[in-house]
Structure formats: C-alpha cells, structure tokens
Write a protein that binds this DNA or RNA. Structure first.
Lengths: 142, 142
DNA sequence: TAAAAACCCTGTACCAACTACAGAGTCAAG
DNA sequence: CTTGACTCTGTAGTTGGTACAGGGTTTTTA
C-alpha cells in the first residue's frame, strides 16, 4: 500500500510517517519506479505500535527502546519493564505537580470575581507579589 | 543594574531574559556606552511577574494577555479572569487525562512481572494489539 | 599597571515531535 | 487529455527556552 493508505489505516498524518522513517522508527520501505513508498502489513503493525505508545505519552526515545526489545525476540523484556516503570513514575509525578498547580490557580482565581479595573484586580496584584532575591547589602542598584 | 544582576535577583538565566526581550514581554532597556543593558526596578518586577506566571504553567501568549491588561490600568480585568479560567480548565483536563493514562500504564505493567524473553512479554504483546482502520472492502493491499 | 577572570554582546543552532508549506513529479478518472 | 488527487524532497515554523562561537568590556587580582 502507498503512504496515504497507511496513513488512513493508522490514523496518522502522512508527514508523521515520513518523520518516523527519518527518525529510524519505521524501516525504509520499498520504492516503486516512480519513487513512491510501498508498505507491507508489518509496517502497519509497527506504526500502530508506535502510535499506541505515543497515545500512552511515551517519548520517541522510550519507544525506540521498546522497539529494540521487540526486534530482539531473545532479549529479556526487562528493559521494557524498566521503561514502563520509569514512565509511570514520571506520569504520577506530573499529576501531583498539576494538582498543586490547579489548587494555586483556583486560589488565585478566587481573588477576583467582579469586573474591576486592572489596577484593582486581586489576581494581577497577587501574581505581582514580589519574589525577588534581595541584592547583597554591599551592592546598590544603579 | 546589568543583566547578570537582574538574572540573579529573578533567578532566571540571562539568555531567558534576552529571549523575553526578543519576544517583547520585557521592554528594551537603556544601553550603556558599551551597549550593555541597564535595568530598573520596573524591569525586575515585570520579569518576576512573568516567572511567577510561568511557574503557574501559563503560556507566554497567556502571559502577554495578562501583561496587556496590567499595562492598561483602566481596562477591565475581565480578560485576565478569562485567561485564568481557561487555564484552570486546561490544567484540570490534563490531570484527568494523565490519571486515565497512569491507570492504563499500571494495567499494562501488571502483564509482565518476570523477566521473560521479549517474544513472550505480555506488555509488548498488549501494546501490539491491532488498532488499524480496516481497508474499505473494495480495495486490497498491494 | 597588566594580565586574568568574569561579564556582556549578537547571531546561530539545537531540543521534541511534529506540522506546514513550496515546488516538482506521478497517477487515476472522466 | 486534462484535471485533481496523490506523492516526492527539502526547508521552515511551532514552544520556551538552552548552548555555544567569537567577539568586546569590566572587574579583580597579583
């Protein structure tokens, strides 16, 4: 099948497929006389694997590691487990960060419910609360 | 003060300050005879505002909007509220997405606890489960 | 006072993971 | 046989910076 067909079947933009090839995640397919790419079932499966991993928010580097394990049927899948464990950690950390963030944002938002002028807006004032590191006492502002 | 001083007081890399200037978030400061940037207290305050917003994960575009409101003391702070509301929505959506993701990842991880060969690894097999859009019946795979 | 260290300048390239062209060639349908 | 849909390569843009290279300037130290 040609690249457009593959793109449809994997719900992936054509440019992205070419990008994965450049990144060596997808092997170079055969070419027709007119230099068109021609793909096999294998390519589709590999592309779906990549897209599934991307949907799980794995980075291309992580996916590359998984593909290497996959390409090496005798290798222990140890490495794949490790990639996944680290990624789970990463996602959970990010969730906690975002939860703290949302809390801060809601608190900030609560400071202004009316349509005040900007100069009176509790939100803009709160964000502006100074956070500067003081100058060392020996120096002075020019 | 010179850029290095400003950088220290706002705990912001020098390059980032110059970048904000290029992005027109910070106004161009005066220059010395040797073409060095010289900043005032105002610049520090504005930079701290930007950094505080970044810590809240607001995009530079969102920050630009907030700064415009701030620069216009007579404007209603309406727009600032709206930016914040949308951002809170955005963060909360992302939290839910990541929670679903973490769940999927944990489930996937549970499929392989031993050090099997890659070809037997439940994880790699699970990710590979086909997801392709079928070809229309009229067409065929070349 | 002179050399060395620390600072500053512009401009460019790089990161991830694509996306969006431009400009040219190829193929299928009517 | 022309029109439109597809494909090709190559390059640039996205976000929010970071990291030089290759200069000039200022401050510190010997």
């Amino acid at each position: 099948m040609k690249i457009g067909q593959l793109a449809k079947r994997a719900r992936t933009p054509v440019e992205t497929i070419r990008y994965y090839e450049r990144e060596a995640l997808l092997p170079e397919p055969q070419r027709s006389a007119a230099n068109y790419r021609h793909y096999q079932q294998q390519h589709l499966e590999r592309l779906l694997f990549i897209r599934q991993c991307r949907a799980l928010d794995l980075s291309l580097a992580e996916i590359r590691t998984l593909l290497e394990v996959k390409d090496n049927p005798n290798a222990a899948c140890d490495t794949a487990n490790q990639v996944l464990d680290e990624h789970i950690q990463h996602v959970e950390t990010r969730i906690h960060e975002l939860q703290a963030l949302a809390q801060q944002l809601r608190q900030l938002r609560s400071k202004c419910h009316s349509e005040k002028a900007a100069s009176d807006c509790g939100i803009l004032q709160s964000i502006s609360k100074s956070n500067a590191t003081p100058m060392p006492s020996s120096s002075h502002i020019k």
